[in-house]
Design a protein around this nucleic acid. Structure first.
Lengths: 222, 222
DNA sequence: ACGGGTGAACTTGTCAGACAGCTGGACAGC
DNA sequence: GCTGTCCAGCTGTCTGACAAGTTCACCCGT
């Protein structure tokens, strides 16, 4: 399958920028020069630059030139924020099977990490730090599932949740319950039972959801 | 601050696509027609289309035109690629509940878009184009779920899958089966039944998985 | 009749050349 | 030293042209 010249130039530029061969802040050669270098017309260069601009890698200023403003695709451009309702609805569908797989595939170092987090949470008094550990626990479970998709999605959800402060309002009572539920999940994962781990996670999320629901206010009807 | 015509056109197109005014699977007007509509030259239109392509919203095929392949920005621009095994394992956990929610929440324009894709798939002979439409169908179902997390994750999986050519090897026989299964999913969504839509999607994914499994050969190499 | 080849009419891909508008800096005049 | 002008270089846009890929109706030989 033939690829267009514009796409070839785009890929070359993107690679050069992402690999740091062209450092952030510097300006690219002018369109005319690039056209000569790549042996194509200016239109082709311009189309390639528009692609780089769309990804947030570069920025073109009239009369001046095109400048590298980032060596990674802009996340903000791509990732929308998720609503609390969407997060609560989606979590179980991903984390429950992830916990099950974790029970089947966890390595020794996975278990070690999980135990460490669970212990730390028990002794943690500061609510903010506790919430961080909570997020770390869920991410670690997903990571232990050995499935990159689960791990990636949960990591993304964790980022989105971190920006929602409702979790902080969980009363100390609820935190203790969560600690016990986490311990139960960990035990099931240690034991290697898909069913039990998945069930323990499901129960946990259901508990958290109802606790959060009473805080947020259940206006999720459509 | 003057903005370039190309950027104006790009934003207009992007908004139209993301808001569903141009549904997934459909083709845009030709560059010449767009140029007349926007009152600009073809170069401007082409630069705007390159931006849309870079974001994974559209795809341009030589001699045919530019087609909308997603109404959300491609996530794998940012995130890493996933292995085939991970994708196959994770898909049902996300797409099944997404189909169920779609049955409860789909709008009229959601249904219209889905019908369009299903019809187009029946008449599509080119395997590559068919796979694109298949991906568009699954993304549209997730989009109709009204849950940004589902839509985002499926969009991400779609992008990752598009880069795995195994799907292309599906024989025509399997494609016809898929078309029927898609029709069944669509019918359940139209009917508004969570259970039926979820079940239809689950069956469909199971069928596809076994078909793919026999091609790939069950080994977990990426 | 009918299957297959063929070309016309579209589409995108690329090129070359032109000119307007913007920007920064050199330079002359005060 | 300060200011205003001018110019070289850049991006933004347009135009017209042709190559190459795609589609589909039409025609020709059987």
């Amino acid at each position: 399958m033939r690829v267009s010249a514009a796409e070839t130039v785009f890929k070359a530029l993107r690679e050069a920028i992402e690999e740091g061969k062209i450092s952030v802040g510097t300006g690219l050669d002018s369109e005319a020069v690039l056209a000569r270098q790549f042996g194509v017309s200016r239109s082709v260069i311009r189309e390639a630059l528009r692609s780089c601009n769309a990804l947030g890698l570069t920025e073109t200023r009239t009369g001046r030139g095109t400048f590298v403003i980032s060596n990674t695709v802009a996340r903000d451009l791509v990732l929308g924020r998720y609503s609390a309702r969407d997060l609560i609805e989606a979590r179980p569908h991903i984390e429950v099977p992830a916990a099950g797989r974790a029970a089947q595939r966890r390595t020794d170092s996975d278990l070690e990490a999980l135990r460490g987090i669970v212990e730390a949470m028990v002794e943690e008094d500061d609510p903010e730090a506790w919430v961080s550990l909570d997020a770390a626990f869920h991410a670690a479970v997903a990571g232990a599932s050995g499935n990159g998709v689960f791990a990636g999605v949960v990591a993304e959800l964790r980022d989105a949740m971190a920006n929602q402060s409702e979790t902080l309002n969980l009363v100390a009572d609820r935190r203790e319950k969560s600690n016990r539920e986490h311990a139960r999940i960990l035990a099931a994962i240690e034991q290697g039972s898909y069913e039990e781990a998945a069930h323990a996670m499901e129960m946990h999320l259901r508990e958290v959801e109802s606790a959060l629901g009473s805080i947020i206010g259940e206006d999720n009807n459509d």
